[in-house]
Lab assay of single mutants.
Amino acid sequence: SEIVVAMYDFQATEAHDLRLERGQEYIILEKNDLHWWRARDKYGSEGYIPSNYVTGKK
């Protein structure tokens, strides 16, 4: 599975969105859409994140 790191904070506005915290790692579950990826955080929460807010883990 692909691990990404959040470059920016993202506040979830929709129920299906996942909040991003800058510097935290997330697991990508689905990339069915170019701009919104389904991800899981370290607490096990899942939701959609803006793909341009994250970068591949170095």
Rank of each mutant, 00 (worst) to 15 (best):
P50W: 05
Y53A: 11
S51R: 08
I49V: 08
T55E: 12
W37P: 02
W37N: 01
I27R: 07
K31R: 10
R19Q: 13
K31T: 06
Q24R: 06
I28L: 08
V5A: 02
D17T: 15
K42C: 07
K42I: 10
I27S: 06
K57P: 10
I3D: 02
T55K: 11
Y53D: 03
K58N: 14
E46P: 00
N32F: 11
L20E: 00
Y26K: 00
I49E: 00
K57S: 11
Y53W: 07
S51F: 05
E2H: 11
E46F: 03
L18E: 01
Y43A: 09
T13P: 10
G44M: 06
E46A: 04
H16A: 10
V54K: 01
L20K: 00
L20F: 02
G23F: 07
A15K: 13
Y53I: 06
D41W: 03
S1V: 15
H16R: 12
I28N: 00
Y43G: 07
Q11H: 13
A39Y: 02
L34G: 12
D9G: 04
L34P: 15
E46M: 06
N32L: 13
I49G: 02
S1P: 14
M7G: 03
R40I: 08
E21L: 08
R40A: 07
F10A: 03
Y43H: 10
N32S: 14
V5H: 05
E14C: 15
A6Q: 01
E25W: 10
H35Q: 10
V5S: 04
E21W: 07
N32Y: 11
I3Q: 05
I49T: 01
A39K: 00
L20G: 01
S45K: 15
G23E: 05
T55L: 08
I28C: 03
L20C: 02
P50M: 04
Q24F: 08
F10G: 01
Y48Q: 07
A15L: 12
R38E: 03
I3E: 04
K57Y: 10
R22P: 05
I3F: 08
T13I: 14
R19Y: 07
M7E: 07
H35K: 11
N32I: 14
G44R: 01
T55N: 08
N32K: 13
M7I: 14
M7L: 15
H35I: 12
A6K: 01
G44A: 03
A39C: 04
G23A: 04
A6Y: 03
R19N: 15
R38S: 04
G47E: 01
A12C: 10
R38C: 13
W37D: 02
N52H: 14
D33E: 08
Y8V: 09
E30A: 09
D17C: 15
Y53H: 10
G23D: 07
D33N: 12
M7H: 05
Q24K: 09
G44I: 04
K42D: 03
Q24M: 11
F10C: 07
D33K: 06
I27T: 11
D41V: 01
L34Q: 12
N52C: 15
S1I: 15
E21P: 00
G44Q: 04
H35M: 11
V54C: 04
A15C: 14
E25Q: 09
Q11E: 15
L18R: 01
Q24C: 13
N32P: 14
S51H: 07
G47T: 04
T13G: 08
Y48P: 00
P50H: 05
N52W: 15
W36S: 05
A15W: 11
G23T: 04
D41I: 02
S1D: 13
H16F: 11
D33H: 09
R22Q: 10
E25A: 08
D33G: 10
Y43L: 07
V54D: 02
P50I: 03
T13V: 14
T55V: 13
W36P: 00
E21V: 13
R38H: 07
G44W: 03
Q24S: 09
V54P: 03
I3A: 06
E21R: 07
P50T: 02
Y48A: 04
P50A: 03
G23Y: 07
I49F: 06
V5W: 09
I3T: 09
L29H: 00
I27A: 08
G56H: 15
T55H: 09
I28K: 00
D41S: 04
P50G: 03
K42P: 07
E30R: 04
G56S: 14
H35R: 10
Y53S: 08
E14F: 11
Q11Y: 14
F10W: 15
Y8H: 10
W37Q: 02
T55W: 07
Q24E: 15
L34H: 11
H35A: 08
S1T: 13
V4I: 04
G23H: 06
Y26G: 00
I27K: 06
E25L: 10
Q24Y: 07
N32W: 09
I27M: 11
W37H: 03
S1Q: 14
R40T: 05
Y8Q: 10
Y43P: 00
I27D: 04
T13S: 10
V4E: 00
Y53M: 12
A6R: 01
Y8C: 15
S45L: 12
E14S: 15
R22Y: 09
L34D: 14
E25M: 10
E25I: 10
K57N: 10
K31Q: 07
Y26L: 04
R38A: 04
E46K: 02
S45R: 15
F10E: 01
R19T: 15
Y53G: 07
Y8E: 09
E30P: 00
E30M: 08
S51L: 04
Q24T: 04
K42A: 09
V54S: 00
E2P: 08
A6E: 01
W36N: 06
A39I: 04
Q11C: 14
E46H: 04
I3V: 12
V4G: 03
N52V: 09
G47H: 02
R40S: 05
M7V: 11
A12H: 05
Y53C: 13
L34E: 15
E14A: 13
K57M: 12
E2I: 13
R38T: 06
Y53Q: 06
E30T: 06
A39M: 02
N32A: 12
Y26I: 03
D17F: 15
G44F: 03
A39Q: 02
G56I: 14
I28M: 02
R22G: 05
L34A: 14
